[in-house]
Simulated scan of single mutants.
Amino acid sequence: MERRPAGDVGTAPARPVPITSAAAARSYVRSLVAEGWRAPSDPASERAVMDLLLVVSELVTNAIRHGGGLAGFEVALLPDAVGLSVHDYSDAVPSAAYGPGTLPLVHEGSGYGWPLIIRLTREIHIERRREGGKTVSVLVPLA
């Protein structure tokens, strides 16, 4: 699984949207994919959309719970994937940020989200924001 900067993933412009919750982010992304990803004769599989929505939920929830709040959310529809960028207010990078996606052996109330993001995305890039905080950008395959 290759991990490279999200800026290298394609030419489709990301659309910043005012999102305040994981549910709002999921709803927005679902509508974008239903309306704009590929032709209606070649829709994304339900499994691919569910994986995408799980990643959306985890990224937004992590920003809210661990990142000091959601500072921004962007979506880019690409030929074979959806690019997501989530901005938060924390400089802290997730531990094992580019690890193998191994789930924790013991559940202690959290710890499953980041490994799931690693498993379900094709690329991850974490960048510190000039104004403070960070941006986590990922590509979620739909093909």
Results as ranks from 00 to 15, higher is better:
Leu77Trp: 00
Ala34Tyr: 11
Leu139Met: 14
Arg119Asn: 04
Val138Arg: 03
Asp88Ile: 04
Pro94Phe: 04
Val49Ser: 05
Leu52Ala: 12
Pro5Asp: 03
Glu131Ile: 12
Asn62Phe: 07
Tyr28Gln: 01
Val9Pro: 03
Pro18Lys: 05
Tyr28Ile: 01
Phe73Ala: 02
Ala14Trp: 02
Phe73Lys: 11
Arg65Ser: 07
Gly72Trp: 00
Asp88Val: 00
Gly132Ser: 15
Gly68Gln: 04
Pro141Met: 12
Leu32Met: 00
Ser110Arg: 05
Arg26Trp: 01
Leu54Tyr: 01
Ser95Leu: 15
Arg47Gly: 14
Gly99Asn: 08
Ala22Asn: 07
Tyr28Leu: 09
Val33Asp: 02
Glu131Ala: 13
Val9Tyr: 06
Thr135Phe: 06
Pro5Lys: 05
Glu46Trp: 03
Met1Ala: 13
Leu77Cys: 01
Pro5Met: 01
Arg122Glu: 08
Ile124His: 04
Pro104Trp: 05
Gly111Pro: 03
Arg3Ala: 12
Ala24Phe: 04
Arg47Met: 10
Arg128Thr: 13
Glu108Pro: 00
Thr11Pro: 13
Ser41Met: 09
Val29Trp: 08
Ala63Trp: 05
Leu116Phe: 07
Glu46Leu: 11
Gly109Asp: 03
Ala22Thr: 14
Val17Tyr: 03
Ile126Pro: 11
Ser45Leu: 01
Ser137Leu: 04
Thr20Lys: 08
Gly36Trp: 06
Val106Pro: 07
Ser57Arg: 08
Val33Arg: 02
Leu139Val: 11
Leu52Thr: 15
Phe73Ser: 00
Leu142Glu: 02
Glu74Ser: 07
Gly111Thr: 13
Asp51Ser: 03
Ser27Glu: 14
Leu139Phe: 06
Arg122Gln: 12
Thr11His: 14
Pro104Ile: 00
Gly133Pro: 09
Ala25Asp: 11
Thr11Lys: 06
Ser27Trp: 01
Gly101Tyr: 00
Ala44Asp: 08
Gly10Lys: 02
Ala48Ile: 15
Ala76Trp: 00
Pro43Ser: 14
Ile124Met: 09
Glu123Ile: 07
Leu105Asn: 09
Glu131Tyr: 12
Ala81Glu: 05
Leu54Ile: 12
Ala14Asp: 13
Pro5Ser: 09
Ala39His: 12
Ala14Gln: 04
Ala48Asp: 08
Ala97Met: 01
His125Gly: 11
Arg15Pro: 10
Pro40Ala: 15
Ala76Cys: 09
Thr11Met: 10
Leu54Asp: 15
Arg119Glu: 06
Ile19His: 10
Pro100Gly: 11
Ile126Ser: 05
Leu32Cys: 10
Asp51Gln: 10
Ala97Val: 05
Val60Leu: 01
Gly133Glu: 13
Val106Trp: 14
Gly83Phe: 03
Thr11Cys: 14
Pro40Cys: 13
Ser90Met: 13
Ile124Ala: 03
Arg119Gln: 08
Ala63Cys: 14
Ile117Val: 15
Gly69Phe: 06
Leu70Pro: 07
Ala24Leu: 05
Pro40Met: 15
Ser85Lys: 06
Ala23Arg: 10
Asp8Arg: 10
Trp37Met: 09
Val82Phe: 01
Leu32Ser: 01
Pro13Arg: 06
Ala71Arg: 13
Ala143His: 04
Glu58Pro: 08
Ala24Pro: 15
Leu78Met: 14
Val55Phe: 08
Ser137Phe: 13
Arg65Glu: 14
Met1Val: 12
Val138Asp: 06
Ala6Cys: 14
Tyr89Ser: 05
Ala34Asp: 12
